[in-house]
Design a binder for these strands. Sequence first.
RNA 1: GGGGAUGUGGCGAAAUCGGUAUACGCGAAGGUCUCAAAAACCUUUGGGAUAACCUCCCGUGUGGGUUCGACUCCCACCAUCCCCACCA
Length: 867
Amino acid sequence: MNEKYFPKEIEEKWQRRWAEEKTFEVKEDPSRKKFYALEMLAYTSGRAHIGHVSNFSIGDALSWYKRMRGFNVLHPFGWDAFGQPAETAAIKEGTDPEKFTRDAIAYMKWQFQRMGISYDWSREVATCDPEYYKWNQWFFIQMLKRGMIYRKNSPVNWCPKENISLSNEQASQGRCWRCNTPTIQKDLIQWFARITDYADQLVDDLKQLEGKWPERVVTQQRNWIGRSLGAKVTFRIADSDDSVTVFTTRIDTIYGANAIVLAPEHPLLAKVLEGRPEREEVLAFAENLKAEQRSAALDEQEKKGIFTGGYAINPFNGERMPIWVANFVLIQYGTGAVMAVPSGDQRDFEFSRKYGLPFHQIKLTADGREIQPEELEAADESWTTTVNSGQWSGLPSKEANRLMTEYAEAQGFGEASITYKLRDWGISRQRYWGTPIPVIHCERDGIVPVPEEQLPVVLPPNANLKVEGGSPLDHIPEFVNVDCPQCGGPARRDTDTMDTFVDSTWYYFRYCDPRNDAQPFDPEKVGYWMPVEQYIGGIEHAVLHLIYTRFWTKMMRDLGLVKFDEPVLSLLTQGMIIKETFECPEHEWLFPEQVTDEKTCKICGRPVIVGRVEKMSKSKKNAVDPIEIIDIYGADALRLFVLFAGPPEKDKEWSDSGIEGTSRYLQRVWRIAVKWQPRLAGDGAGSGVEQGGLRDYQRRLRRRTHQIIRAITENFEERLHINTCISSLMELTNEIYSFDQAVEKNGGASEADIFVAREALEALTRMLAPVAPHTAEELWESFGHKQSLATARWPEFEEGLTREEEIEVALQINGKLRSRIFARPDASEDDLKRAALSDEKVKAASDGREPAKVIVVPKKLVNVVFK
RNA sequence: GGGGAUGUGGCGAAAUCGGUAUACGCGAAGGUCUCAAAAACCUUUGGGAUAACCUCCCGUGUGGGUUCGACUCCCACCAUCCCCACCA
């Protein structure tokens, strides 16, 4: 054993050993309890970053812990390898996406392996492997056959910078989720998956996740699906056979409606305008609205509308209401038409005020007044009583809502209705580097799925990525031109590829059976390993990946492949590792050493802009390369740092002195272990020691050892606040040092000393394994163990040994700490009370009075209250 | 506009069920060892009053409340961050 701690040597040794001995490879074993620990697959960007270290370190700590607790732990890894950035990089570097991606995988794998994560690499999956994406195609065909995938011409979100269509999830806020470019709308024939068929289940099953998934992810998903209960009401168009249907959550406000407002795209618009003099003007106006809606941020826009000249009839009271078209009504939501109720809705109010539409009083405030227009900013829940609403006047809003819906249904002009914000998932992309859509278009037979035995449809190599117009695949005749599988006639392949989020919906099912070439996975194997006990990843997938994968699981359940509703039992969204950036107005990005303590630029003296960003980059001069850190301090010190800096779900700021601190800690552990190791190696040393015969400092170390085992164990079981586990390990290390000093004072180690030290050092080593596995393995071996720590058991604590011999009880007078009582831990309440009352401070404070109250919290405190 | 968080020393943070606030680490100061430095080890380190290690006062964003007792529960406010957003 080396005197000094050389992480590089140790880490290389154990990484080799683990690989050779296949330490982390696992098989299904129904006799053992399983645990599936999963980190989100890595996008093949080309380079590992510190966020990967953070993500993997958390999952690895849990994997080690569970393994040592006797679980059969599946901890796999893979690559999210398709996608647009590989194409961009390939064009830039003059290579092809396949080569770029394979190189990225090779390099990143080397980087990740240097972190020494306990992955079962034999299950590695890359989504760009035909053996993998074959099953994307297989799923596509199953869904197509069941009508769960369909094609329609639709305006898609289009990122003009990357030339790619985006799903709604990927284009929220009207910006590309990757490059933040404002998206535009484009009409294309697209493939859609009917995720909306599962909207109710996706909402309802969130209940199963509450408490186990972060609340904000559950809330975000609920809001994203946006289920809202209301009613559809159909209004007849005056002097015509046509009608218009609106969706409202507040049918009880219908007597206050003063207009019907259509979205600019609404199909009824053309009909209403037919033969009217204002036709041209209104259509032009509507076109203009559309263009504006698509370009500007919606919240900045003023309400804008125009009267069409048509009227609709309110079915409740027969009133004629003007039909308008306006920019604040969205074609995608509800029916694309609303009834405007200025006394019930802020937008309708603004609209009505601007265009002078009448204001009908239909609600009273909680204290019985009529509401005034200027009160509309306030919450409308308080305007409880319905008035001026025919037979429903006098009813509370909620009841009116229910009864009026029933009435509308009975009269045949309305019905209860549910709408969702969630829309079907557009899964096709006009790009090259993705899973080809396994469909053939035949002039005679229409859309024909590629026969399953012909899968995979392999992505052809050597595409020209720079072609203008359509997908690069369009320009490869040998790919496009095929015979129709049904009639044998000439036909064309579909040249779209799948959204990469399809790849990642089910990859972790594949890990359970990664080399299966007959089906996506063996349901029995998935039945053993799934669901995932702990999933760890970034918050950015709250409504992307995490909603798609829940949908896919339910879909697979309906295909009979899996037997559960939810794939992930517990989710942890880890925080980012951020680093400060400094930006000088004059000198742009500065290195930290170019900035004074007062945050001014050392070159020009101007105040600098301090930022905190996750994405580290060379250009912003805040890059931290994990491999550079590993070269200097070792993977264990790096892992320890990212885990110790704060709780897993919190953002953590990178700190150079922090990494030095954890490195120093490992050296400290190393030194004490080196010192004691020769004494521990002797067989049976220290056996037969009786607890009763131990001296104070020996009993203390045993007690602290067992207390700390308990603390760390409970933490892993309940909270996974690994940062405090590491604190506890440091405390135990400090205790061992104090113990060592006592031993020094005695002039040498006795049998009993060795017994106690062995217990403490071995417990420390075993509990170090989840957070610093290489170091722990090396120490474990040096203590004379032949088997890897991966096969060792987690230390057990003995309740009896954790008990304090004497405890300090706080003594409060009127709730303020005034003194302490030293007592035995089993002291009764009466004992503590007696001790408190005889305390000098209490006597002084009593001033001869009897205490009004004495509160005793056993083992904690006594509070003596004087009035 | 709606929703969700967060706020504790010089800094990262801890306090798990309402019970001794600041564990653990970083930084800083002093000391030991050394010709010297580094490393290591030891001591101190929330603020204030005081000659004082005694003792007292203040202290978990602000202001109230509940309680014998509040970082923790309730109400209001301030600040910061995140998500969603003309969703009818």
